[in-house]
Design a binder for these strands. Structure first.
Lengths: 241, 241
DNA sequence: GCCGCCATTTGATTTTGATCAAGTGAAAGC
DNA sequence: GCTTTCACTTGATCAAAATCAAATGGCGGC
C-alpha cells in the first residue's frame, strides 16, 4: 500500500532543500512549499571546519541552524577551564534555543560539518504562525531532554569502563541513521572530547579503549575507526538497556 | 501603572484553580476560563506522602500532573539498582512526557506533596486545539533541558565539595520562589537522595556537609534545616556563576 | 625518506571518593 | 522510661581514577 505524500510537487520545493528534506525529517519537514521557499530566501548554508564555533556560551543568539552533515558538540565551560560536553547533535538535528536571549552553551563542530542557518526573527515569526513548526521543535527539545537525562545516569553512576562503552554504543547507534550496519564507524570526537563528554581524563579514556580492545569488545584502526564485532556484548559492557 | 489582567472575572475560574493560578504561572495559565472549567471537570487533586510514586520507569503514561505543593524527584534506575536523580521538580511545575507512550523515568514525591492530575487524552486534545498551551509546555521542556545540562556539568566535572555546595545553592534558589530570603530553608531530600542526585555515596555527602559546617559556609539544625549566612560564599564553594 | 609535531598510549604515583564498619542521636513503640 | 529503629555521622582502609611523566606512533612538511 503506497502512501501518497501531501506536499504536492517536489519541484515546488527549493532545490537546496530537496536532498535534505528527502533524506531526513528535520524541522523544515512540516513547512509548506511556500513557507520553505520563503525561509530559504533568508537561509544560508555554511561549511564548518572541525572546531568552528556555531555560537559561544553567553553570546546573543541571532541565528538558528539545522545540521545538514557532521556532528556538533554542545559544551559548557567553568571559569577555571574545566569543560563538559552536554550534548552531541547529529544531522538533521535543529540547533538553537528559542525564547532565550543568550546561549548558555557553546556549540562547535566536532567534525567537518555543514549547517543551514536561519535568522532568528524569521524562524520566530514562522513559529508563531505555524503551530506545527513549534510542535516539531517541542518534540526535538523533549528528545534532547531524554538524552540529557540518560547521560546524567552515565555521568553520575557508571564506571569509567561503562562510560566508554556507553559512548561507543551511543556513537554506533547515532552516527549514521541511514546505515543498517552499525558495527563499523569513525569516531567523531578526539580522546580529549570523549573525556569531556564522559567526565573523565584523556588518560583514563585511553586506558579503557585499550582494555576494551584487549577483551575483544572492539577493534580500533587509526585511532578513529572502530569495529564492533558484537553489539550486544558492547551494550552489556555499557550496562545499557 | 496597573496592568489589567486579560482573563476577565476571577469568578469564571474554577474555585480550586484560583489559588493555584493566582500564585504561580503553571501550564493552566494560558487557558481561557472555559477551557479551565472543562479541564477541571476531568482533573483530580491528590495528596502524596513522601515516597509516593507518581509514575514508574517503563510504565504507560495515562496522566499528566501539575505540582501544587512539594518537591518531586525524577529518577532513573539501572538493572543492578544503581540510581540517579535526573531532575527535581518544584511547584508549579508540569509533570509528564507528551508524545511518548511510556515513561523513561520514575517520578516520586520527595516531600509530602500535592498534585493535580489530568487524564492524558484530555490534555492532548486541548494541546492540539490550543497552540499557546503547547508553547507553554515547550518552554517548560526547554527550561528542564537547561537545568539538566547545568547538572551534567556538576556531575561530570565538579568535586564532591562543589557538588554538595551546588546542591545547597540549587535548593536555596528553588525551594520557595515566593520568599525573598533564600538563606534559610528545609532540605527536601534525605542524605540518600542527595547522594543519588550528586552521583556520590551517603557517606561522602555527610562528610561534605560536616566540612561546610566547620568552615561556616552553612549551619545545620535537625539534619534538615539549613542556614546560609553568606549566599555568595556558598556560590563560590559551588563554583557556580 | 626524514623530521617535527601532536594525539594517543603507557607507566608510576597520588588523591579522591568508595567501601566497610562502628558509633551517635532523635523519634516511635512498648 | 527504656528499647528499638532508622537516618545520619565518623573512622579506617581500599580502589578507581586523577595526576605527573615519559614513550610511541601517525601524519604533514621539507
Amino acid at each position: 500500500m503506497e502512501v501518497r505524500r501531501r506536499d504536492i510537487h517536489n519541484s515546488d520545493i527549493p532545490i537546496v532543500c530537496r536532498a535534505c528534506e528527502a533524506r531526513h525529517g528535520g524541522v523544515c519537514g512540516t513547512l509548506t512549499p511556500e513557507q520553505l521557499t520563503e525561509l530559504n530566501k533568508h537561509s544560508t548554508r555554511h561549511r564548518l571546519e572541525t572546531g568552528a564555533e556555531v555560537i559561544g556560551q553567553g553570546e546573543t543568539i541571532v541565528n538558528y541552524s539545522n545540521i545538514m552533515r557532521g556532528v556538533v558538540k554542545l559544551t559548557k565551560v567553568m571559569a577555571d577551564g574545566r569543560q563538559q560536553i552536554v550534548g552531541l547533535q547529529f544531522a538533521p538535528d535543529f540547533l538553537g534555543r528559542p525564547f532565550l536571549e543568550e546561549s548558555a552553551i557553546t556549540a562547535e563542530a566536532a567534525t567537518e560539518s555543514e549547517v543551514c542557518n536561519f535568522p532568528r526573527p524569521v524562524l520566530d515569526r514562522l513559529m508563531k504562525k505555524t503551530p506545527e513548526l513549534e510542535h516539531k521543535l517541542h518534540r526535538q527539545a523533549l528528545k534532547e531532554l531524554d538524552e540529557a537525562r540518560d547521560w546524567m545516569l552515565t555521568l553520575g553512576r557508571k564506571t569509567a569502563q561503562e562510560k566508554v562503552a556507553s559512548f561507543l554504543y551511543l556513537i554506533a547507534t547515532h552516527i549514521d541513521p541511514e546505515s543498517v550496519d552499525m558495527s563499523t564507524f569513525d569516531l567523531p570526537l578526539s580522546r580529549a572530547d570523549i573525556a569531556d563528554f564522559l567526565g573523565l581524563t584523556i588518560e583514563t579514556v585511553s586506558r579503557q579503549f585499550t582494555k576494551l580492545r584487549k577483551e575483544n569488545v572492539i577493534r580500533i584502526e587509526n585511532n578513529r575507526h572502530v569495529i564492533v564485532p558484537d553489539m550486544d556484548r558492547l551494550m552489556r559492557y555499557a550496562s545499557a538497556d
